[in-house]
Structures are given as C-alpha cells and as structure tokens.
C-alpha cells in the first residue's frame, strides 16, 4: 500500500475517505485559496478500510507535521468503520494532545458528539465539530479559529492592511503598501479591535462597552465618535476616498461599531 500526499507548507491534514467528492474538493480549493496547504491522506490499494486511513493519518502526522487535522467520522461502507473517525481522533490526541482537530461530520450534536468529546477531553485536546454540509467558508473559518493563529497581516478588502505586530496600518495600491502615519495610539487600538473582530467573524460588532476604553473625556461616547470619524478621514485620505456613514466603519443602531470591507 502506498500513500499519495498533496501539498506542503502550512499544512492541514485531511483524513476523509470522500476527499475526492465534489463537496470535499470545494473545501480543499477554499483551503488553498486561503493560504492553507491541504495534505490529503489517501491510502491506495484494494479493500481500503478505516484501519488503513488511521495508519496513514498517523504516519502523515509524523511526516508532514500539520498545523491541524480535518477528520471525518465515518469511513467506508463497513459497519465496523461507522465511527472509525472517533478512534482515529483518539489516536491523534494520544500522540499529540495539542493538535487542533476539526471533526468533519454530520454528527455535530447528540450522543456521538459527546462520545467524541469525552474521548478527547481526557487529554485536553483542541477538538471542534462541523457539519459536513457546512459551506467551505464556514469550514475554513472554524479551522482558522481552532488553530488560533491570526495572520501576520489582516487585510481590509483590497485597500488596507493591518500589521498588528508592528502596530501599523497600510494603504494598498497596485500591490504597493504605504504606511498611514496618522493612525497610531488610540486610533490604532480602535482599528485593531474592529479589524480583529471582522477577521474572527464578518458579522461581529464591537460594543461601545469595549471601545470606550479607547476614548477619554466626560462624554466617552462622543469622544469615541470623534476618534472614529478621524480614523475614517485618515483612511479615506490615504486612498483618495471619502467613506460615508455606511462604509468601512459603521455605527450599528447605537449598539457599537463594525468594520466592513470597503468596495474597490
């Protein structure tokens, strides 16, 4: 039996006997688009069973050192492999208790999920579950959160880029990045909060209660409003645009602010 390994770099180990299905291909494509390198475990030979996937998965874990594992619960048509993924999960967490595993299954809830959780919690593994019918975007989002690694830079559409490590916001034009010097101090903190929330979840709003620590004066809400306005002006000037009330940073019915990707 031989093994076919696809991909390299920052790797996601994909252990699923349906990896050639259209549905899984759309997930693999999305992973690649988002900068991940899927490493597909695909044992070759006749009468492939869940055992073959388990052996290959454990071998690939050692050989490829993936950042996370995307694992199916059900393997093959044999009854004995009905929940083979749970046994593979146990083997994975036994080998590396810190390995993030996203279980790609339709048993996201109910007793089977509990079984899987109890199998994994004993070693404090980082395990999450996602429905097999989830969209590729949702799969990648969950995987990204599970790994817990924010990207080096957070892109805000095609116009801006935040470099949290160097505390810098850039305007991007024709592949060239130019530092926006006006955005620093509290304005940078606000930008960072909003951009990080957007990165975590597109619909996440940052409530006033969290943002008001970046404002001062007696009326912190008014102070925050001024800072946001200044922020939008600085960002607009950097790309020769004027961002309206419903663009880039939006006040959502006086609950808080939300960042949205600007249109090109």
């Amino acid at each position: 039996m031989t093994s076919k390994i696809i991909g390299g770099g920052q790797k996601i180990l994909v252990v699923d006997d349906e990896h050639m299905s259209d549905l899984m291909r759309s997930v693999l494509r999305k992973l690649e688009t988002d900068g991940f390198k899927p490493v597909v475990v695909a044992p070759e030979g006749e009468h492939i069973t869940g055992e073959d996937y388990e052996a290959q998965a454990l071998f690939a874990m050692e050989a490829e050192r993936p950042s996370a594992v995307l694992l199916d619960v059900r393997f093959g048509e044999y009854d004995s492999d009905r929940f083979k993924g749970l046994s593979i999960l146990k083997s994975i967490v036994d080998r590396d208790g810190s390995m993030p595993v996203l279980m790609f299954t339709q048993y996201t809830q109910g007793p089977y999920r509990d079984t899987a959780v109890s199998a994994s919690l004993s070693v404090s593994a980082s395990v999450d579950f996602i429905d097999k019918l989830a969209s590729p975007e949702e799969v990648v989002l969950r995987l990204r959160r599970l790994i817990g690694s924010a990207p080096g830079n957070i892109k805000i559409g095609s116009l801006f880029e935040l470099d949290p490590e160097n505390a810098a916001v850039y305007a991007v034009s024709h592949g060239q990045k130019e530092l926006i010097r006006e955005i620093q101090g509290m304005k940078l903190e606000i930008f960072n909060e909003l951009a990080s929330a957007m990165y975590r979840s597109e619909g996440e709003l940052v409530p006033f209660s969290r943002l008001e620590r970046f404002s001062d004066g007696e009326d912190s809400r008014a102070s925050l409003r001024v800072r946001i306005r200044e922020l939008k002006v600085s960002l607009g000037q950097a790309v020769n645009r004027q961002f309206g009330a419903n663009e880039l940073i939006i006040n959502v019915r006086n609950r808080g602010y939300r960042m949205v990707s600007p249109e090109d």
Partner: peptide, 21 residues
C-alpha cells in the same frame, strides 16, 4: 456566521456581539 450569507441573500444585515467581550 452560518446564517449571515442567508440573511445577506434576503437583504438583511445580521450582526452579533457579546458583553463582556
């Protein structure tokens, strides 16, 4: 996240937040 695309398709804006963060 799961329902946001559906809401967008229906012309709705779905936002969420938690307090404390």
């Amino acid at each position: 996240d799961r329902y946001r695309p559906i809401a967008r398709e229906r012309g709705q804006d779905l936002v969420w937040w938690c307090e404390p963060s």
